[in-house]
């Protein structure tokens, strides 16, 4: 097995008196989809934001390709090739697909944007992800369906030679067919060698695309296991109770002994 592309060791994060993350260990492997699951308030979003540079971890080590790094701003994360696709997507509705994908990182000189090159790259990126539902890359985002928007947001993250892509509930607001498309897209990201983190509440989605599952329970990482070694109900137990059989937190009685 290769080295993880991103590894967090003993990460703590508090907001005032609220201790959100307790000594969290987490690793992302290139070419794999790691599902990050947990109940509401378990600390999933905080963990993602710590990696994305929106929050800075209070303590703990973040290693990228084996080297310790500091991520203090979204810029730092972007420089490492870590991209986050947020739940609310953060696309500009009135701009078209190309303009959104290159927003803030336009090609060409400041005084004359290179539209042809951007359009070409946008089309190639969508094609490399086998996106076929978008008729024209010059369609304004306001005219796209929810699934298509999600596709554009993901493609935007992929455009930048990303190494790690974190997806925050990408299928939460989607219908059946659109969910299908996005899950296929998530798989293809991993096939391109990107380390993918999928945050999801949907166990069916998780078991379908994830190579390994990481479970957060009240701010602690209680299990990080390959998907084929656990069952659906074990993961649900881990999420709700923090343990399941030998997995997860130690039993209270054994801890007492």
């Amino acid at each position: 097995m290769s080295e993880p592309i991103l590894r967090l060791t003993g990460v703590n994060k508090s907001f005032g008196p609220v201790h959100v993350l307790h000594d969290v260990d987490f690793a992302v492997w290139p070419g794999e989809v790691t599902a990050l699951v947990g109940d509401n308030g378990a600390g999933k979003s905080t963990l993602v934001k710590s990696v994305a540079g929106i929050h800075t971890a209070d303590s703990g080590l973040i290693e990228f390709r084996g080297k310790p790094v500091t991520v203090h701003s979204p810029r730092d994360a972007a420089d490492l090739g870590i991209e986050v696709v947020y739940q609310d997507l953060a696309l500009a509705d009135n701009l078209d697909i190309v303009q959104n994908m290159f927003l803030g990182r336009e090609r060409g000189t400041p005084w004359l944007l290179d539209e042809a090159s951007m359009e070409q790259a946008a089309r190639e990126t969508l094609a490399s992800l086998s996106v076929r539902t978008v008729k024209s890359v010059r369609t304004p985002v306001s005219a796209l369906s929810g699934g298509q928007r999600q596709t554009v947001a993901i493609a935007k993250a992929v455009l930048w030679d990303s190494n790690v892509v974190l997806l925050d509930e990408p299928t939460a607001a989607l219908g059946v067919a659109q969910t299908r498309q996005v899950l296929d897209l998530v798989r293809r990201l991993a096939e391109q060698g990107i380390g993918v983190v999928l945050i999801s509440h949907n166990m069916a989605d998780v078991f379908e695309v994830a190579d390994r599952i990481a479970v957060l329970y009240l701010g602690r990482m209680v299990a990080e296991v390959p998907t084929d070694e656990v069952t659906h109900s074990q993961v649900v137990e881990l999420i709700t109770a923090g343990r399941s059989g030998d997995l997860g937190l130690a039993r209270p009685e054994s801890a007492a002994i």
Binding site: R75, A90, L91, A92, L95, N100, L103, G104, P110
Partner: peptide
């Protein structure tokens, strides 16, 4: 780029901010 960012800020200021 100035013009493009003008549209972006008017369309979704938060998206523009997150895009740097």
């Amino acid at each position: 780029r100035f013009g493009r960012h003008t549209y972006a800020v008017g369309s979704n200021a938060e998206a523009a901010r997150r895009s740097g």
